[in-house]
Design a protein around this nucleic acid. Structure first.
Lengths: 150, 150
DNA sequence: TTTCGTGCAAAACATTTGCAAGACA
DNA sequence: TGTCTTGCAAATGTTTTGCACGAAA
């Protein structure tokens, strides 16, 4: 964890930003909740537990900054809120999500699945792909098991 | 076009809703701008041109209704606005988007590209896929040509 | 000193809701 | 009549901004 904080600190400094205590607290919350797809409000409340003096606006500004630097990805699942996901280390592409329409669970899929599709897009539409987002909607394995028991 | 209006009318009636003049005006705007990914506000302004007495709330309510009935898809490109896309006739899956990060153009890709990926998700994660959304970010063929000329 | 970052409150936006009035079976 | 549907205005909820103060180089 400290290692990743260090890496992010360097990343910020390279872009001439400082890793202030508020920013560090925000990053720590993101690291501690990597799987959780937190909203800005969520992050704010969690940061407040350890640094009660922080303001919501600062959290927003920090998340915006981290998004700009591609340290986090800002995502949107269709409820009215933006969520923030730490980029997995070294990942060049955004990871994928499996959203269960029964229980609302959001699982992550890190595997790179789209190379063939990307090639098709590049040749057929002459579109030079830099990044992508892929989300599947359906029923997760847990709900399938639950349904079976009914 | 009248045919599609008729089909939508039947679809509404099956679910015991009426195709009121306001709803029809809204649907017509969506049909006339199928490629455009309009926001609620955009739709409102366009409907107003022909039916000035309509209210913004009605447009929102109509779009919500159409989304519920899967006549349109509510999508989100990360700016703070929801956009609404008519489902292509008979399409079982949402179509894909190519977003150009230079000029902001959003092109649509109707082809079904993901069957292999879907199979992988279903077997590996035991996730029963119902629908998906796929968006590519990159540089469109127009901007690539422009860049070449510089 | 000068720049950058912060907290707070106010503002800006998109979207939703309450409600009284209208349309229509 | 009774049920939907509408327009308006007000309310809501998220995100952004203005500004004066504080911290750090």
């Amino acid at each position: 964890m400290e290692k990743r904080i260090e890496a992010i600190k360097k990343h910020l400094q390279t872009a001439s930003y400082k890793l202030t205590p508020q920013r560090e607290a925000t990053v720590r919350v993101l690291l501690e909740h990597e799987e959780d797809h937190l909203s800005a409000e969520d992050v704010y409340l969690l940061v407040k537990e350890k640094s009660p003096e922080i303001g919501l606006a600062t959290v927003y500004r920090t998340l915006e900054l981290l998004t700009e630097l591609k340290i986090v990805d800002k995502i949107n699942f269709g409820d009215g809120v933006s969520r923030y996901d730490l980029r997995h280390e070294g990942a060049t592409h955004f990871h994928h999500h499996l959203i269960c329409t029964e229980c609302g669970a959001v699982d992550e899929v890190e595997e790179y699945l789209l190379s063939d599709v990307e090639k098709a897009v590049e040749t057929t539409w002459k579109f030079q792909v830099k990044d992508h987002r892929l989300t599947f909607y359906g029923i997760c394995h847990r709900c399938q098991e639950d349904d079976g028991q009914k």
